[in-house]
């Protein structure tokens, strides 16, 4: 891609275009300010003491006596650590389940055929479009009904999220993996079949190594989605020890009339940290996953 850009460069950077380039930099800088102001302001607030936040004088965008007390308070609080632990185990379980289900299905839909496989590939994509806001009420009722039937409590259990989250991650992950798998040359698996490999062997020895970038992109997507999910845990979990991070911070740190803004902002930043770090180190995979769904359509 960069080579193609370099080839196009002479036409783009002519002398009359220099002012246009500077204008582009100026506009981008303005948008950067707009896009980055909220996280920056969260950082500034999280470094302030409650006294400094309550004092209504001076520039709110500067911190005069920076302190890490808010972070220390959160990281020392068993409640916050419980939220973090719940989020982590839900994410690990959901990402693993998602990758197993979608890899198998994508391999089958990309390479093998059976009655209705074409319709299924289309159906998978359509399910991705059904928003969770349409399904949370019937699901709530279904789990209440299952409790009456089996005697097992589903609502207000953290592992319930492991059951419902895959519906958010599996369709899209399957879809992007189908794209990656079908770009693998057919000769590769035909050669493996001739050598007497089973389908599982072909999947693990041929497809997974070759489609590794796609797997990474799908994993990042699945993790980001379940880490950020807000509606399901808000509707399905209420006890302190069952909450995951986003809901825990919104419902637990915001209570009563006195908001501890420093801690809320520190909590928001700590919650945002894992996906942001993942993004910082694996940006290309992240963007590949993001664009794979639509540009190939």
């Amino acid at each position: 891609m960069s080579r193609a850009d370099a080839a196009a460069a002479p036409y783009r950077v002519g002398r009359p275009r220099r002012w246009a380039l500077w204008a582009a930099y100026g506009c981008l800088a303005l948008f950067c300010v707009f896009f980055l102001a909220p996280p920056l302001y969260a950082l500034v607030t999280s470094l302030k003491t409650s006294q400094e936040i309550a004092a209504l004088e001076g520039n709110p965008w500067f911190v005069r006596e920076p302190t890490l007390a808010n972070y220390a308070a959160l990281l020392g609080s068993p409640v916050f650590l419980q939220f973090f632990w719940n989020s982590t185990r839900v994410a690990v379980i959901v990402v693993s389940v998602t990758m197993i289900i979608s890899t198998l299905a994508a391999f089958s839909l990309a390479r093998m055929r059976f009655f209705g496989s074409t319709a299924l590939a289309t159906g998978v994509f359509l399910t991705y479009l059904i928003p969770e806001t349409l399904l949370f009420i019937p699901k709530f009722q279904i789990f209440t009904w299952l409790r009456d039937l089996t005697g097992i409590e589903f609502i207000n259990r953290w592992w319930l999220l492991c059951i419902v989250y895959p519906t958010l991650t599996v369709p899209f992950c399957t879809w992007i993996l189908i794209g990656y798998f079908s770009s693998i040359p057919k000769e590769l698996d035909e050669a493996a079949i001739v050598d007497g490999a089973s389908y599982l062997q072909i999947l693990f020895k041929v497809f997974l190594p070759v489609a590794l970038p796609g797997l990474i992109a799908a994993t990042i997507f699945a993790f980001t989605v379940c880490w950020a999910q807000f509606l399901y845990p808000l509707a399905f979990t209420t006890s302190l020890d069952q909450l995951v991070l986003p809901v825990g911070i919104v419902t637990n740190l915001i209570k009563g009339d006195v908001f501890n803004w420093g801690q809320i902002m520190a909590g928001a930043l700590l919650t945002a940290a894992p996906p942001v770090l993942l993004y910082a180190f694996l940006m290309d995979y992240y963007i590949a996953g993001l664009t794979a769904g639509a540009t190939k359509g």
């Binding site: 980055l36 909220p38 996280p39 950020a228 911070i249 919650t271 942001v276």
Partner: peptide
Amino acid sequence: GLLLVPWVIPPAMSTLV
């Protein structure tokens, strides 16, 4: 990289901010 940051932060958290 910088301009994509709002999309990466969990929306519930950025809305809090």
